[in-house]
Amino acid sequence: MTHWIDLDSTPIPGARETLHLRRWGEAFSIQVGTAELMTDQDRGSEQALATIPCERLADRPEPRILIGGLGMGFTLRAALGVLGPRAEVVVAELVPGVIAWARGPLAHLHGTSLDDPRVSLVEADVNRLIQSGPGRFDAILLDVDNGPRGMTRRSNDRLYDVWGLKRAHYALRPGGLLAVWSGSPDRRFKARLRRCGFAMEEIRFPAHPGGRRHVLWIGTREEKGAAASTV
Rank of each mutant, 00 (worst) to 15 (best):
101 W>Y: 06
42 D>G: 02
55 E>V: 04
20 H>W: 07
31 Q>Y: 03
11 P>M: 03
12 I>R: 05
119 V>F: 10
165 L>Q: 06
143 D>T: 12
62 E>H: 13
174 P>D: 10
196 C>A: 15
171 A>V: 07
15 A>T: 03
118 R>A: 10
85 P>Y: 03
206 P>V: 03
51 T>L: 06
163 W>D: 13
225 G>Q: 07
224 K>S: 11
89 V>L: 06
116 D>R: 00
160 Y>G: 00
219 G>Y: 12
66 L>A: 12
215 V>I: 14
212 R>K: 10
167 R>V: 01
194 R>I: 10
185 P>R: 08
100 A>P: 01
115 D>C: 01
184 S>N: 04
21 L>W: 09
183 G>W: 00
62 E>M: 05
149 R>P: 01
142 L>V: 08
140 I>H: 06
136 R>Q: 15
33 G>Y: 08
57 L>V: 09
126 V>W: 04
87 A>W: 01
33 G>H: 07
172 L>H: 04
67 I>P: 09
109 L>A: 13
186 D>H: 15
4 W>T: 02
157 D>G: 09
229 S>Y: 13
98 V>K: 06
52 I>F: 14
32 V>S: 15
147 G>C: 09
59 D>V: 04
182 S>P: 08
67 I>Q: 10
158 R>Y: 06
134 P>E: 14
193 L>M: 15
187 R>G: 09
208 H>M: 11
96 P>E: 05
11 P>K: 06
228 A>G: 05
32 V>F: 01
113 S>Y: 01
223 E>A: 15
18 T>L: 06
100 A>C: 01
218 I>T: 09
97 G>Y: 00
86 R>Y: 08
212 R>P: 04
226 A>C: 07
92 A>T: 05
44 G>C: 05
40 D>G: 03
198 F>K: 12
107 A>G: 11
69 G>W: 03
15 A>I: 02
117 P>W: 02
9 S>D: 09
77 R>Q: 10
127 N>A: 14
88 E>A: 14
29 S>C: 15
103 R>I: 00
133 G>P: 02
82 V>P: 00
134 P>D: 11
55 E>Q: 15
178 L>R: 08
169 H>Q: 12
184 S>M: 13
145 D>P: 12
227 A>Q: 13
14 G>R: 07
81 G>H: 03
90 V>T: 13
9 S>C: 05
93 E>D: 05
154 R>Q: 11
161 D>C: 08
183 G>I: 01
184 S>L: 12
104 G>F: 02
34 T>H: 12
81 G>F: 02
33 G>L: 10
226 A>M: 14
208 H>Q: 13
154 R>S: 12
45 S>P: 00
35 A>R: 05
157 D>Y: 03
113 S>N: 02
172 L>F: 03
96 P>D: 02
5 I>W: 02
97 G>R: 01
193 L>K: 04
176 G>T: 07
170 Y>T: 08
52 I>E: 12
20 H>C: 00
199 A>S: 15
224 K>G: 07
102 A>L: 10
71 G>F: 00
59 D>C: 04
100 A>D: 14
206 P>C: 02
69 G>M: 01
62 E>D: 14
123 E>L: 13
3 H>E: 15
90 V>D: 05
90 V>I: 14
